[in-house]
Amino acid sequence: MLKLSVLDQSPVSEGSSAAEALRQTVALAKEAERLGYTRFWVAEHHGASGLAGSSPEILAAHVAAVTSSIRVGAGGVLLPHYSPYKVAENFRVLEALHPGRIDLGIGRSAGGGALAVRALREHRREEPDDFARQLDDLAVYTQGMAPGGHRFAGLEASPDADSAPQLWLLGASPGSARLAAERGMGLAYARFIAPHGEAEAMAEYQARYLPSSAAPRPAVLVALFAVCAETAEEAERLALSSDLAAVLLARDHASSPTPSPERAASYPYTPFDRQLIRENREHLLIGSPPEIRERLEAIGSACSCEEIMIATVTHSFEDKLRSYRLIAEACRLQSRSIPQS
């Protein structure tokens, strides 16, 4: 059976606030757990008025504390900005608090504009980025102690715990797939970035996978955007928000709050905007429950993937919740009985 998971970027809606977006992320995590989704990831963005999640470590910690069984993690921590040692310790603390439930997804993107990136890296020495070495170090530190031959041999990441967070690399290319495979990490393919390359990346990952002590078998998922409603027509109406959001992002080169479908419907689009919308629609799954289920199963089959992670962005939080509920029902997820605190 196809597993489904949730990625939430804590999007801010027009007329709302970042604080409300974070509260909605927490509410969504609780509902995703009840509905039977496998894992819940939060994202990292900086200097983005339309996305509230700037600290996935803190947000994931809160989500894990208010849920009980769903896996929780980051999708992902933007490792080039940070020390792998500190990232490992952050997530070892989370794993010690919530054993067997923590995922550490790693991203490589900037996650913000040039000014934000400069501020994030202000402490770093002027040297070329070496993402591959950062991944190697992270794999070492999440398991505990750096071995002999490592430049920090004997250094142990704290706290000492019986289990370690599960490592995932977020990517959208065969190159990212190779990096994950050669280090025995899970691969989360970002279909919302490259909507036609998942099969090639998955094949590369499977062919080159080197089992690690932490992950003896390959682990793959595909992450995508989807909007589901009771009818295809209503789903199309809700997706108008994503159309205008894409146009505004291209115009302003910065994330802005999610517009309402009503504003999107009346926006004076240019021919260039219309073309941009057509291209952006390739990144989206939009439809009724049977249509979404059929497309999810087709994607899973095409890339031999047993798990798909869904990000849904709508102006109304209730529409977002309804979309996840309809997808869960259509895909026959097993709902959970949540203990009362």
Rank of each mutant, 00 (worst) to 15 (best):
M1T: 13
G15V: 14
T25R: 15
A27P: 05
L28M: 00
E33N: 07
L35C: 14
H46L: 08
S68A: 11
S69Q: 14
A74G: 15
A74M: 15
P80N: 13
Y82G: 05
P84H: 02
V87F: 01
V87N: 02
E89A: 02
F91Y: 15
F91E: 07
V93P: 04
L94A: 15
E95P: 04
G100W: 14
R101D: 07
L104M: 13
L104V: 10
G111F: 07
G112R: 09
R118Q: 06
R118G: 03
L120M: 14
P128N: 04
Q143N: 08
G149T: 04
A157R: 03
A157T: 05
S158W: 10
S163D: 09
L167A: 00
A172W: 10
R183C: 04
G184T: 08
M185R: 00
G186Y: 12
Y189M: 03
F192C: 14
F192S: 13
G197M: 10
S213M: 05
R217G: 04
A219F: 12
V222R: 15
A223L: 06
E233T: 04
L238M: 02
S242R: 12
T258V: 15
P261T: 13
P271M: 02
R274G: 08
L284D: 10
S288W: 10
A298V: 05
I299M: 05
S301E: 03
A302T: 02
E306Y: 01
V313Y: 00
S335H: 13
